[in-house]
Structure formats: structure tokens, C-alpha cells
């Protein structure tokens, strides 16, 4: 079994602070991590490797420091790691990113599963997985919370807003997994040392990936950011509701109705 996991290194947005004076984001000192649900994707690939044997390849598109994310994946137990990095990729939107990943995956040879996290915590788009599925011409199962494989048939639970559905297809398939899928293993200390000193991270440039230049990076992106600004905390906007308990609950319910919340 050969399973490929696509991961992204993201700033830990849970650690982001705002400058109390300017209200701007303080990006410095924000730790970089493997996107949490991508870690679930790695874990699921490793779990299947534990069950069926085979190899796990982890790939990421990103700047040189994304190597750290790959080293962690190697320490968790991945066999091979590929860093796709090139200035030519800069400014890629989800479409150009999935195209680039698709080209790289086609160069990796035969595979059974492509696993992605459902969404990244810095962008929250959840788009790269399905777009990659389209590029590779694979069936997809998104929001996966459980995987069972028998021979070349996968049976997966796909989370819905109000429950889940059980779906089945033949391999190969693309999955996007949610965090309920598993609990990612913590890389062992001895394995971290080995991942840094003995394992290799393969670096691929735009040339190695061998894609259409018009479809990568900013050139290959249909979307453009027109404006971006930090969200400033709006202090003191609170409306304190006064009066009897009956009064305040009544006002509150009226506000809920106004905002379509009930």
C-alpha cells in the first residue's frame, strides 16, 4: 500500500495575539505547526500502514522552513518526504496549489490513497483536497471520520452536520479527514533524532514538478486579494440589558429573532 499525505505548515493561529495599541497582528513568535487536521491525515495513513504495511509519503508545498513540518511527519513514521518549493509558486491560490500538488503526485508513481486534512486553520477554505481530487480524476470522500479498508475497497464514515453517512468506493481515492478520525501520535524522541540525522527530505522545484507555468503561483491563480486588514477588537460595544428578569430575557429573545438565530 502506498499512501500519500498532503500537509501544510501553518502559523498556530490559536497563539496569535493582537498588538493592544495598534490592533495589528503580532506575527512574530507565532509558532509554526503542522496543520492540525493534516496531522490527523498523517495519523490515518500511518495507522493503515501499521495494519497493512506499505509506505507513506508526505508532501507539502511551501517555503524552505516547511521542511520542519516534513521532519516531524518523518519522525511520526512517514517513509518519504517531499518539499515542493520555488519562488514561482508564490501567491498560489487553492486552485494553483492543488494543480501543483497534482503534478507532484503524478511524479510519485502509483498510490492507493491520497489523504488531506479537511481544512487548514490559517485559511479555513477546505478547498485544496477536493480540487486535488478533481485534478487527479479521483473519487473523493470529504469530512472522513472513520476508515475501514478491505482489499481494494474503502468504507468510510463521512461526517454530516446532523449525523454521518457511510460510503464506499474502490481505491484509489482522495480523502479529507476531520479531527474526530483519530488521535495523532506524538513523535517519539528517538525518532525525531533519526528523522533529522538520517532521513532525507526531497526538494522539488517548479522544474522538477514539471507543470504548466501558466497554472502555478500567482499566474495560475484566478483569485486576487484586493484588501486585507486585521480585525480590531471592538471594546465597549456591549449593550447591558437592564430591568426585570422577564424584561431582559424578552429583549434578548427579540434580538435573537432579529439575527435569525432561533
Amino acid at each position: 500500500m502506498h499512501n500519500i499525505v498532503c500537509i501544510k505548515q501553518v502559523p498556530d493561529t490559536r497563539e496569535v495575539r493582537l498588538d493592544p495599541k495598534t490592533g495589528n497582528l503580532i506575527r512574530e513568535g507565532v509558532p509554526s505547526i503542522i496543520n492540525p487536521e493534516d496531522k490527523n491525515a498523517i495519523e490515518e495513513a500511518l495507522r493503515l500502514k501499521d495494519e497493512f504495511g506499505g509506505t507513506v509519503t508526505v508532501i507539502t508545498m511551501g517555503p524552505p522552513q516547511a521542511e520542519e513540518a516534513l521532519r516531524e511527519a518523518l519522525a511520526m513514521g512517514a517513509d518519504k518526504a517531499v518539499l515542493i518549493g520555488d519562488r514561482a509558486f508564490a501567491g498560489a491560490d487553492t486552485g494553483a496549489t492543488s494543480y501543483t500538488l497534482g503534478c507532484a503526485i503524478n511524479k510519485l508513481g502509483k498510490y492507493d490513497l491520497i489523504l488531506c486534512g479537511r481544512e487548514a486553520i490559517d485559511g479555513n477554505t477546505a478547498q485544496v483536497g477536493p480540487q486535488l481530487g478533481e485534478i487527479l480524476g479521483l473519487p473523493q470522500i470529504t469530512y472522513v471520520r472513520k476508515v475501514v479498508i478491505r482489499k481494494n475497497i474503502i468504507e468510510a464514515e463521512r461526517a454530516l452536520e446532523d449525523g454521518y453517512e457511510v460510503v464506499s468506493t474502490q481505491l484509489p481515492v482522495l480523502l479529507t479527514v476531520v479531527k474526530e478520525c483519530n488521535e495523532p501520535r506524538i513523535a517519539a524522541v528517538a525518532d525525531i533524532i533519526e528523522a533529522y540525522r538520517e532521513k532525507e527530505v526531497i526538494a522539488w522545484s517548479a522544474k522538477d514538478v514539471d507543470g504548466d507555468k501558466a497554472r502555478i503561483g500567482l499566474n495560475g491563480s484566478w483569485t486576487r486579494i484586493r484588501k486585507a486588514a486585521a480585525v480590531k477588537p471592538q471594546k465597549g460595544k456591549v449593550q447591558i440589558l437592564e430591568g426585570s428578569v422577564g424584561d431582559v430575557t424578552k429583549t434578548l429573545v427579540a434580538e435573537f429573532n432579529k439575527r435569525n438565530l432561533l
Partner: peptide
């Protein structure tokens, strides 16, 4: 919103 809700961005698709 992006970046964990810390940034708000306006995006356009000029040609697609």
C-alpha cells in the same frame, strides 16, 4: 475571515 479570524480579506476573481 482568515488567519484564525484575525484578518478579514476581500477577494476578487478578475478573469475567471
Amino acid at each position: 475571515p482568515a488567519f484564525g479570524g484575525n484578518i478579514i480579506a476581500t477577494i476578487v476573481t478578475p478573469e475567471g
